[in-house]
C-alpha cells in the first residue's frame, strides 16, 4: 500500500494529478469525506468537511464548512485540469457516533444533506456513498485510477467506486 499517501485531516482539502498518488481521510465520524474525480484527466480531490454551514463564521479555516469546501474543491480541481462537467462525487462519513440526544448528533446527517445540496446546485452527480449509521470510516482515493475505497472500524477496504485505467492512449 501507500507509496505516496496524502492525509487530508479535519477541515482540510487536497487535489492531485500525480499518478499513483492516494488521498486519505482516516477515521471519519460525523465528518464527510467528499471525493471528486475527473476520470478522463486522472485528477482527483478530497475534502474533509466538519460542519454543514459557516453561518457567517468564515475566517482562516473556512474549509471545515461544506459551503466553503465544496466550491473550493471544485475550483482547485479545475485549476489542475479537471472539467466540472466531468466530475463524479463519492461521499463517505456523516455517521452518528454516539447514541445521545445532543446537537452534535445530527451533525452527520446535516453534513451529508448540505454537501448533496451543494453538489446538486453544481450539477455534479453522486456516484457512490457510504454514509449515515454509527460507524467510523476511512476513505482512500486513488488519483490515477479514480478508485475509491472505504473501510469501517474493524473491517477491510471495500471498493465503493471501481477504478478504471485512464490514459488508454498511452498503451496505444
Amino acid at each position: 500500500m501507500g507509496a505516496s499517501e496524502t492525509m487530508v485531516r479535519m477541515g482540510e482539502l487536497a487535489v492531485s494529478s500525480v499518478p499513483g498518488h492516494v488521498l486519505v481521510s482516516l477515521g471519519l465520524g460525523s465528518c464527510i469525506g467528499l471525493a471528486l474525480l475527473d476520470r478522463k484527466m486522472g485528477v482527483a480531490g478530497l475534502a474533509h468537511i466538519v460542519l454543514p454551514q459557516s453561518q457567517g463564521h468564515g475566517g482562516e479555516n473556512s474549509r471545515k464548512f461544506a459551503d466553503f469546501a465544496v466550491p473550493e474543491l471544485v475550483s482547485e480541481l479545475e485549476g489542475i485540469g479537471a472539467r466540472k462537467i466531468r466530475l463524479e462525487a463519492v461521499l463517505v462519513g456523516g455517521a452518528s457516533m454516539f447514541a445521545v440526544a445532543s446537537s452534535s448528533l445530527e451533525v452527520g446527517q446535516r453534513n451529508e444533506a448540505s454537501v448533496r445540496e451543494l453538489l446538486k446546485a453544481m450539477r455534479i452527480p453522486v456516484k457512490a456513498t457510504a454514509t449515515g449509521g454509527n460507524k467510523g470510516r476511512t476513505i482512500r482515493v486513488d488519483v490515477s485510477t479514480a478508485a475509491v475505497t472505504v473501510r469501517e472500524a474493524g473491517g477491510k477496504d471495500t471498493e465503493l467506486l471501481a477504478g478504471s485505467r485512464v490514459l488508454e492512449a498511452v498503451a496505444a
Binding site: 479535519m10 447514541a99 451533525v107 472500524a153
Partner: peptide, 27 residues
C-alpha cells in the same frame, strides 16, 4: 452531566465527532 453513551470505534472518528461540536465558532 447528561447520561453516558458507550461505543467502540475508530479513535479519530470519535474524537473528531466530539470536536465538531466545538468547531463551529472557533479554530
Amino acid at each position: 452531566p447528561t447520561p453516558p453513551s458507550t461505543t467502540t470505534d475508530m479513535l479519530g472518528a470519535l474524537v473528531a465527532s466530539v470536536l465538531a461540536g466545538a468547531a463551529a465558532t472557533g479554530d
